[in-house]
Amino acid sequence: MPNNVALCAEREYSPHAMAKRVLVVDDAIFMRDIIKDIFASGGFEVVGEASNGVEAVERYKELKPDLTTMDLVMPFKNGIEATREILRVDSKAVVVMCSALGQEALVMEAIEAGAMDFIVKPPRAEDVLAVVKKVLGEA
């Protein structure tokens, strides 16, 4: 966790940083598309997608994105396990959970596991961008 703080501070001092690179993880293409469009509208670059936890970890290793949005409930490996694994690979990973209302307990479990924040489905562009900009120390 301390590392994250340091990293955020660093980012604040680079005003001409390139668009932040995002990995979007959700088992519904539909949801991924919505989230992708939101990121595109906020000036982020979506560099990859994954439809389950196993794929998420793989894509993370490959892409090293600045930010990963992670669905909670997915086949093969759920979002919490995937988050744990990603953080094991890269302790600086910034993972933001995507959850539906009513999943508070799971979200807290994910936060326990190291998720940096969460956004609520259905995602609203303003909320999503506010959360991720905060998390990345841009706001």
């Binding site: 088992d27 539906a100 489905k121």
Partner: peptide
């Protein structure tokens, strides 16, 4: 678990579509 996931996905999608 799988059944739950499917129901859950449908809920999420439907809510997002309004």
């Amino acid at each position: 678990d799988e059944a739950f996931r499917h129901a859950h996905s449908v809920k999420g999608m439907a809510a997002s579509m309004g």
